[in-house]
Amino acid sequence: MRCRSNSLGALLRIRSEATGAIHSFFKDNGYTHIHTPIITSNDCEGAGEVFQVEPPKEAGEPGENPHFFNVPAFLTVSGQLHLEVMAGAFTKVYAFGPTFRADNSQSRKHLAEFYMVEAELAFVESLQDIMQVMEDLFKRVTDMVLSKCSRDVELFHKHVAPGQEAKLEKMLTNQFITMSYTEAIEVLKQAHEVFTYKPEWGHDLQSEHERYLVKHCGEIPVFIFNYPYDLKPFYMRDNEEDVHHTVAAVDLLVPGVGELCGGSLREDRLDFLQSRLRRLGLEDTYQWYLELRHFGSTPHGGFGMGFERYLRCILGVENIKDVIPFPRFPHSCIL
């Protein structure tokens, strides 16, 4: 009966319009929509929080491979690596579909199944180009949602999150701010605020740090770029000439949510990529990924945006479980 309530009814109409607006944005900008697989043999982020896929066990022949696909298979955490394959043929590609995390968390920010918007662009050599697409996507889609669903959005801004309308207007009318990770750490160290986690260069930004940085920037979305090399996955481009050892990665932080988008330039240099995978013991697993570079690659990059996080941001909804029709989280998969 939940979908018959005013708030969820309005939410689902907004969600539908936002979905159409996202497809419209990419179509109008020359992107090809790719259906990336839900079942995959790779863990893109390397975090290990994946659901393994296996059919019911049956008695097989002695010596028979125990895996249905001959290798361990998982529900996808990201379509990025598959999009990188396609970007070599279509230049600008995107995917929009379900992704999964086996993260045993009951927090208001986590779901086991959620939707991701991911884009990959070939012939890109600057993080600024990636950031511009993120900003344009956010503003264009939000403008379309406000135009098509004004009454539904008004319900949230009046009755669920009073004051959210003014905050959203500020996000849409101001250019997003950019700040390096190193600058961000300095801002946090100089803050007259007691953090649970002490900000240190080389450590991940925590939720409390993200909230403070957005507040410091006047509640305007802020891009944090050039993260420490050891914090990020293997596919991010090494900033070899940086005094600090960093990678060309960027996160977009927004009011009320924290990280909304994450992206990077991809490592297109075979020797750099091979060296890093070898150190991580992943060279055999990602041999196909190395071959993309070995047989001809281009400078490229991309990003992902959590769709439910986006809805939380524009509507002011606190709990991510309230912006998806059938939330999946630990100990809850009712129907």
Score class of each variant (00 low, 15 high):
38 I>G: 09
15 R>N: 02
117 V>H: 02
82 H>W: 03
173 T>N: 14
41 S>M: 05
6 N>W: 01
46 G>T: 06
191 A>V: 09
226 N>D: 11
294 H>M: 13
19 T>M: 08
187 V>C: 09
319 N>S: 13
94 Y>P: 00
196 T>I: 11
231 L>D: 11
298 T>A: 15
176 F>E: 07
329 F>R: 06
48 G>L: 02
38 I>A: 13
124 V>M: 07
61 E>C: 10
42 N>I: 15
108 R>L: 11
260 L>G: 03
3 C>G: 12
248 A>K: 15
210 E>A: 10
125 E>H: 14
106 Q>K: 14
152 D>P: 01
187 V>M: 05
297 S>M: 05
304 G>N: 01
84 E>N: 03
56 P>K: 11
313 C>H: 06
287 Q>R: 14
262 G>P: 00
227 Y>N: 08
189 K>P: 04
115 Y>D: 02
171 M>G: 07
274 Q>L: 14
121 L>S: 10
181 Y>A: 07
185 I>D: 05
33 H>K: 12
127 L>W: 01
318 E>H: 12
38 I>R: 07
101 R>I: 07
75 L>S: 10
265 L>T: 09
90 F>Y: 14
182 T>H: 08
175 Q>G: 15
182 T>N: 07
16 S>Y: 07
310 Y>K: 05
304 G>L: 02
95 A>E: 01
144 M>E: 15
301 G>N: 03
103 D>T: 14
228 P>Q: 04
243 V>C: 10
296 G>D: 06
133 V>G: 00
318 E>A: 15
323 V>H: 00
282 L>N: 09
257 V>F: 07
102 A>G: 11
253 L>I: 04
284 D>Q: 13
321 K>E: 05
143 D>R: 15
143 D>M: 12
20 G>M: 04
70 N>F: 10
205 L>D: 04
289 Y>Q: 01
16 S>K: 15
178 T>C: 13
35 H>D: 14
64 E>F: 06
164 Q>G: 08
276 R>A: 06
80 Q>V: 08
332 S>M: 08
31 Y>E: 00
140 R>D: 10
107 S>W: 00
214 V>N: 05
59 A>H: 14
100 F>E: 09
239 N>E: 13
70 N>H: 15
302 G>M: 02
134 M>H: 03
322 D>Q: 13
326 F>N: 07
